[in-house]
């Protein structure tokens, strides 16, 4: 399989599939394809009925995925401005990608979900889902806007806006916390929720908060 990223502002990922190559993605992302490319649904029912309903209803994770198989070419886009990155995962390597950011992955990649709980405070974030992907295989995903990359050392931390988190290694821990705006009662009243991430591992941030520009998905 070969992946080419074309374009700058709203790029596409153009995938050339050999006979026997299979990839999957969320629905509604295909831009154009070779008529020879095959297509079928792939039901995402991992974890049983209860987990599937929780993931679908609360998390907004799609109930079904789309699977394409070669030979031929097929192009995907999220129809929004932002950098696209391709990543090859080694066997057993696990990464977490922001919800509705993955463009495609080879079917050798195990697709799971990862829940980041919120602080539980009234009126605050109840948590959010990320896609947990385990190699071997290739994944392609798109950020909102530009992507800024960091390599955290063991124990090294960073505070980030929860809309900024695009990608992290599974070894990077993430925890929601309440960021006070100064001291006193007013400082807590004006506080906002953020994420504290801690290494070791890679963390990639996006410069646009997706909640302000809802992504297109199937």
């Amino acid at each position: 399989m070969d992946v080419q990223i074309q374009g700058e502002f709203i790029p596409i990922a153009l995938v050339s599939l050999s006979a026997g190559d299979r990839i999957f993605c969320e629905g509604g992302l295909m831009v154009y394809s070779d008529p020879s490319v095959g297509f079928q649904f792939r039901w995402f029912t991992q974890g049983g009925m209860g987990t599937t309903l929780k993931r679908t209803i609360l998390g907004g994770v799609p109930f079904h995925l789309h699977e394409y198989f070669g030979p031929g070419y097929v192009a995907f886009s999220r129809y929004r401005p932002g950098e696209v990155r391709k990543l090859d995962l080694a066997a057993g390597e696990t990464v977490d990608v922001g919800e509705h950011s993955m463009l495609l992955a080879t079917t050798t990649v195990t697709y799971n979900t990862f829940y980041v709980p919120g602080t539980g405070r009234v009126g605050r974030m109840i948590g959010f889902w990320m896609d947990r992907l385990t190699g071997p295989g290739t994944i392609v995903f798109q950020g909102h806007g530009n992507i800024i990359t960091f390599q955290l050392k063991p124990g090294e931390g960073m505070d980030i806006d929860h809309g900024a988190l695009l990608f992290k290694d599974a070894s990077v821990s993430v925890r929601a916390f309440n960021q006070a705006m100064g001291s006193g009662l007013m400082g807590h009243a004006l506080s906002f929720e953020a994420l504290h991430v801690e290494g070791p591992g890679r963390i990639w941030l996006q410069t646009v908060d997706p909640s302000r520009h809802p992504p297109r998905s199937g």
Binding site: G157, M158, D159, I160, D161, A164, Q179, A180, M181, G182, S183, M186, G187, L190, F192, A194, H196, L205, T207
Partner: peptide, 16 residues
């Protein structure tokens, strides 16, 4: 302006 922070190092103090 409030609400624009993308990330910060933990050593940065936040006030109003």
């Amino acid at each position: 302006a409030h609400g624009l922070m993308l990330f910060k190092e933990p050593s940065i103090k936040v006030g109003r």
